[in-house]
Amino acid sequence: MSVRKIIELDNIRRDFQVGEEVVHALRGVSFSITEGEFVTIMGTSGSGKSTLLNTLGCLDTPTSGEYYLDGISVRTMSKNQRAILRNRKIGFVFQNYNLLPKTTAVENVELPLMYNSAIKADERRQRAIEALKAVGLGDRLEHKSNQMSGGQMQRVAIARALVNNPAVILADEATGNLDTRTSFEILVLFQKLHAEGRTIIFVTHNPDIAKYSSRNIRLRDGKVIEDIYNTNIQSAEEILATLPQNDED
């Protein structure tokens, strides 16, 4: 079976003009990611992880280099075309959840589909409910974002990233705001999605997380300094079982 290349980066550079100086956030990054990989991207703060992820997520355009997302060249696209591409091919999970305030879980998850007129209201709601069930929040559909714990909010955010059935899920420090146990719960969820065949790119500065992914890319000063496939993926679920129970939930 030939594997589909979801992401192909060729010598990506990203320079930021800060006053007189030019900051080189990415200095020639090249790699490709195939369907079904769970890639962690690591590096110290300022190494260019977020810039890379924004580029992968079509939020940012590289200064030079080629980027193909699911076979489509992104570099030459207009702002609007990139917005549509994000809507159809990408699911974002942020460190601080970024849910709409005072809005129910279902409505939050429906959001990406609101910007896709091909999907009718019934289907939209149905898919939002399914996505919420997939992240284990089938019983919290009408809970508002301010009535949920951090872990629950991040699950809603993951459901929102799943709902458009994206080519790749991009997570930037998705467990950064959560305690150890909740972080593992989220990791379990990502591993489950991975097992279902989804492509995931997970940015983190926590080196321990590499054990649970299928591949780890390490950045330093805007360059890839290490790219290792993990043949011995550990189960986050087993670790979770050894952790003490939280009071909440």
């Binding site: 997520g57 939020l59 702002k79 609007n80 917005a83 549509i84 994000r86 809507n87 159809r88 974002f92 970024n98 709409l100 305030p101 959001l111 990406p112 910007y115 896709n116 929102r160 458009n164």
Partner: peptide, 16 residues
């Protein structure tokens, strides 16, 4: 602003 950013990240265009 954040809400706008979020909407854009899930695919809202400027016109939307």
């Amino acid at each position: 602003t954040r809400e706008i950013g979020l909407r854009m990240s899930v695919g809202a265009r400027g016109i939307d």
